[in-house]
Design a protein around this nucleic acid. Sequence first.
RNA 1: GCCCGGGUGGCGAAAUCGGUAGACGCAAGGGACUUAAAAUCCCUUUUCAGCAAUGAAGUGCGGGUUCGAGUCCCGCCCCGGGCACCA
Length: 845
Amino acid sequence: MNEKYPFSEIEPKWQQSWADSGLFKTDLSDTENKYYCLMMFPYPSGKLHVGHGRNYIIGDAVVRYKKMRGHNVLSPMGWDAFGLPAENAAIKTGTPPRESTLSNIAIMKEQLAAWGCCYDWDKEVASCEPEYYKWTQWLFIQMFNRGLAYKKKSNVNWCPDCATVLANEQVVDGCCDRCDSTVIQKALEQWFFKITDYAQRLLDDLDTLDGWPERVKTMQRNWIGRSEGTEIDFALVPREDGANDPSDKVSCFTTRVDTIYGCTYMVLAPEYGDLKELIAGLPQETEVLQFVADSAKLTNIDRESDTLEKKGIFTGRYVVNPYTNEKVPLWVGDYVLMYGTGAVMAVPAHDTRDWAFAKKYDLPIKLSIQNPEGSLVLTEMDDAYTEDGACFDSAEFTGMPNREAISAMAKKAEAEGFGKSCINFRLRDWLISRQRYWGAPIPIVYCDRCGTVPVNDDELPVRLPENVEFKPTGESPLAASQEFMNCECPKCGEPARRESDTMDTFVDSSWYFLRYLSAQDSTQAIDTKAANDWLPVDQYIGGIEHAILHLLYARFFTKVVSDLGLIDFDEPFAKLFTQGMICKKGPDGNLHKMSKSKGNVVSPNELIENYGADTVRLYTLFIGPPEKEAEWNDTAVEGSYRFLKRIWTRVWQHKELLASVSPDSCGELAESIGKMEKPERDLFRKVHESVQKITHDLDGAFHFHTAISAIMELMNAVDAVKVSDNSSEQVKAVFRDAMEKVILLISPFAPHIAEELWKELGHDGGVLSADWPEVIEEALHRDEIQMALQVNGKVREQIFVPSSAGKDEIEKIAMENPAVQKWTEGKTIRKVIVVPGRLVNIAVS
RNA sequence: GCCCGGGUGGCGAAAUCGGUAGACGCAAGGGACUUAAAAUCCCUUUUCAGCAAUGAAGUGCGGGUUCGAGUCCCGCCCCGGGCACCA
């Protein structure tokens, strides 16, 4: 054994040993005590920094802990390998995306190994490989056949820099979430997944996810955005010129039907489907069309900014409020979205937006809700009244509390056939086509005779061609490849063209956790039995940034696959842990999430070289509560290094002494508790208190940082017992037992040093095969308990009382205490509170 | 605007059920060892007063409940995140 902690020697050695031993290869047929631990698979960008490391280090610690607890743990890893960066690199350097991706994967695999993170690589998947995307395409076809994948022309988010469309979820504050360019709207034919069909289930089942953080569930609820309301048909007043309309009514959705007697006009969204026909040939036509064209030019940012002044224009048409039979004007407004029906009834008296609009265009305002004081007067109002009250000037509903009126009025609409209660969701269908090369081709063929035809199963995968030009033209590079585009129709065999769009990479990552269980299976996408045996995932670990996107899509896919009958569960992740981001001050002096673009990355390579992987792991876990953001501190890493060195040195200093204790005498310690002297008794108790605390910290909230501080405390207690060759056999045995426990307890966090020292102590089995320490209840026992004496809530003295003492006895000891007598002298004792094991509080006046 | 988190020493933080605030670590200061440095070890370190014993104050601010509040309640302020012209 070396005096100096030789991390650079032992770490590669044990990494090799873990790889050779097959310890992390999981037998899927052994499902007893199974534990599926999943970390979000990374995009192979080539270089991981210590911020990425947090995810894998947390996961690896959980995996190692669960293994020691006797679980059959599955911990696979793979690559979210399609995506824009590789394609952009190809445009710049000419290196084909597949080539750069595969070499990045190789580099990152080495990095993970150097961190000591172990996986079952037999189950590795890479979403860019035909063996994987074949089944992504197959799933697409299953969804197409069920009407869950469809193509439609619509206004879509277009990122001019990435030259592709984006899903709503990928637009953040009106900008592309990849490159920050301003997203514009474009009308294009695109493929969608009908996630809206699952909106209610996705919402309802959130309630069953007890193992998920509340804030993630809240975010998903907000995103799905269910709202209950009423749809009301307003009849169109027929045109004076006798021309026909596409429909004789305009429906609007409202959550406040109780205010409908105050409706004074209606507003359509500029994109409203029938708008052109409604105004064709009217004097207002040119102006309205100009207005619509101007609105279309607004970017998402303009449109979503609340400082933007609402603009609108009268269409020349009128509709009839079915409750009042009043004729009200029909307007177009740029603030109305294509949500619900794309038409809203305007009640300026009770909606702040309508109020502003009505004031600007001098439209009438009518009161239809009176406040509880009955004091509302239109002429004195300077904004809309949006609170509750009683219906006012509302025919038979007048006087009814407005909340009740909502259902009463909906009932009337239903009875008379001009409306119904209905539910709207904010969630839109998932736009999945991308006009880029490096993704899974959408397996669809266009035939002049047969139309849109899915590729036959036996012709999957539709492979990406190798020889293409990587230039972002707004059309997929695939469109320029004749070899790719020209094909035969799967139905009639005539010449046909392929779909040139590829799928959003979030499609790939929506089912990879199912594929791990059949990674090598070339006959089917999902192994039903293995999936049913091993899923839902017991513990999913990943970044909070995926709270909506990936986690919502993966839930959606799981429900679809369940409905296809391929699995018999419909939520993929039983427990979710979202770790906080690692931040660091950048060159600009501000704190940012660690990333290349902010210039604040810390590379693990140098740290591993200087301190070893165990130090990096220990510091990463010690930095703070794992669910919270943390600031990386280069000098604080030293502290973790010092601690590991200290453990190493202690074993080295006492290696002969440690070897001299027979392993049996440690096992028998529980029986000799009664014979222990105070120092070793205290250490023995501390050992078991530590085991209890650390086990609790790991089973609950993954509080590695407090677990590690408990190990540090335990080491402090070990050092407080000055063990030497002259010590009694008993002291030596307790010391050895304590050192063994330190090694076992720290092994999930710092596995290399733990393995080495475990071996040094004469164990051959390897620390991963050792059992996690058990708490011996008797060891926790104390004869005397320290308690605080308080007078009026202020601590005045510390005392020791026998742990067997009852409340009365404790009170007696307390009252006799000189400090208590000093502070209570001349005062009346009103009350004495005894909390056994904690304190005595004497209330005096 | 609405909905979630959060605010504790110079810093990262801890306090499991309302029960001794600041565990553990970083940084800083002092000391030991050393020719010297590194490494290691020991001591101090919430603030104020005091040589000390000790006392007082103290968990964003103001109230309240309680024998006792970082923890519970009411009202504010600030920071982070999500949603937001969704009718």
